[in-house]
Design a protein around this nucleic acid. Structure first.
Lengths: 333, 333
DNA sequence: CTGAAAGCGCTAACAG
DNA sequence: CTGTTAGCGCTTTCAG
């Protein structure tokens, strides 16, 4: 069913039908005739063909690293909030933490006719660099700061530092660090930096054996912590993500250790998970939703050609202390 | 940058360039000439235009009700697994539980040139019915059984019944039901039916005041349970989703009630959340990932025109008993 | 092996 | 107000 057939059925020209769908000049009679045919056939013009013609799809592509992630969901939520009202639709691509997928989907969007891209970044490889460069539509990067691109990101270093300081203030003399790969600049490198800075400030020694690498799962936090506990009982653990912290607390619990008394634990992200655990988790709230909204606003400006140079926006954090650091009792859900 | 320009730069015809990208007959010299230009310009053919021409995008659209949901993530994971190897890409649309969005995105996919659609259903309205009917590409519906369409869904009734029976077997004389709207046939109506069936089997009375309505959040489970606890202390609660159960357990805990001893709690879905709570949650494991895989296989068959009539596939469930029903100690993360 | 030409479904001048 | 015409960027006969 295409515009020509509809035109024939309604006894008008293709142009008239096109105008019907694009509020052009049209007599009431023709309008009615077309309306009838459209109603009856359920015809809708091919967005595909329209985009090819007008070079504008009103779709924006979002590349994200994970699906089942609260932070991702919050960012995307913020994006929708800003974009829905402007008549844009979101096309999401889940890369399942695979950089190759990220590149592939960025390329899909490049050739697929979206008007703009929001990229929830994780790791940047040369391939990313080159596909981003070849992207001739506006892009905004969220959660990572990337030289030369419009970015909205968080104060990962500050948040990590604040969490580590809190552990120390609450009595940890030798806080452990369980983090993720430094190839992820924000969640890996910067948070690690924050941890190191806090130790330095407190004049505590930096020990390589106190810094352990996990992936983004609770399972890996659990495993790593078990290994540690086989050797000794740390008095505090700073985890680069709440998810890792969940695993750590689970391991402590199984070892009969009281989280918040014997072992202090803190994470980053303030996820819902950390509010329902046996001992509620101290964390740093990051403004994920706001970052999504801001990124969308940036993208809108860029798409309207109002992009006055490259901007990069850093958002702050909020310390949320709960029972896992021995502080005040948690707020409820 | 389009095919014509590339052809000009390489000193060949458009056709040759097209063949370069579609493994057609081409002399080595021309191939090399084109390769050089492509390399240098970073040109990639417009998927957009190609699709218009060949009526095939190798993209499949997935409409999903929520982002930050483990079940959704597992289903999508399964879909990717089956589809990635076949060279298809997934375009995800998040409807944020808004039926209007569902209809809008189904329509986007209808006119946007995807080759097939997988619809993670929630509630069906007449608008859904009509947009589904007008969709002239293959569709598979997941998690709901919908007359006349290819579906993959779960034994919601059986799972709910098994959970309720378990509560009764473990000593609950008057299990409460906290469920979601029956407009969601699978998660609302069927699970409620399962609860009712279990009560009937056990010859327990059905009381309207013991069946409460929540939305899909922990917060609503928490609120509803607080209201109940203000009146009396139930000996068991069956929740239609794990998320609701999380809220319920939180409310119990705040009220100083021992979950698994004084109050038994069970949910459905076997989510990761339920494994890290203070008292690990008894639940029914549903085969979400498998449902995604099966749905993708069905879609592939349909797209290949091997759709031997409408099929509907029901998957089973597994009872996972943990401490919240007083049974054996939980497995760890 | 190669290129010219037709056309996918649509919109935007342009001339009535 | 309306229809004719010319493409958007690509693939695919069809003759060479």
């Amino acid at each position: 069913m295409n515009i020509t057939e509809i035109a024939k059925l309604a006894g008008v020209s293709k142009t008239a039908v096109s105008r019907y769908f694009n509020q052009g000049y049209l007599s009431e009679e023709k309008r009615a005739a077309i309306a009838a045919v459209v109603e009856q056939t359920g015809y809708a013009p091919s967005e595909q063909a329209r985009t090819l013609r007008v070079r504008r799809s009103r779709q924006i592509g979002v590349v994200m690293p994970r699906l089942n992630s609260e932070s991702t969901a919050r960012v995307v939520d913020g994006i929708s909030l800003s974009l829905a009202g402007e008549g844009y639709q979101l096309l999401l691509a889940n890369t399942a933490n695979d950089p190759a997928n990220e590149v592939a989907y960025l390329d899909t969007f490049r050739t697929g006719g979206v008007d703009g891209v929001i990229f929830l970044g994780s790791i940047f490889t040369p391939a990313h660099k080159s596909v981003l460069k070849s992207l001739h539509i506006p892009v905004v990067i969220v959660a990572q700061q990337y030289e030369g691109y419009n970015c909205v990101y968080h104060d990962d270093r500050g948040a990590a530092r604040a969490m580590t300081e809190l552990l120390i203030r609450r009595g940890s003399r030798r806080p452990l660090y369980l983090g993720v790969t430094a190839r992820d600049r924000a969640a890996g490198f910067d948070r690690h930096e924050g941890y190191l800075a806090a130790l330095k400030d407190a004049e505590l020694p930096l020990r390589a054996e106190d810094m352990l690498l996990c992936d983004f799962t609770a399972r890996s936090g659990y495993d790593r912590m078990r290994e540690v506990l086989a050797q000794r009982t740390p008095d505090g653990v700073f985890c680069a993500t709440d998810t890792i912290a969940i695993g750590v607390m689970q391991a402590c619990r199984e070892a009969g250790l009281a989280v918040g008394r014997q072992v202090l634990v803190a994470g980053i992200g303030d996820s819902a998970l950390g509010r329902v655990t046996a001992v509620p988790l101290t964390s740093a709230h990051l403004h994920y939703k706001t970052s999504g909204q801001e990124a969308a606003q940036m993208l809108l400006r860029l798409m309207r050609g109002q992009g006055a140079g490259v901007r990069s926006l850093q958002l702050g954090y909020e310390v949320v202390e709960r029972a896992s650091t021995g502080g005040p009792e948690c707020e409820t859900i």
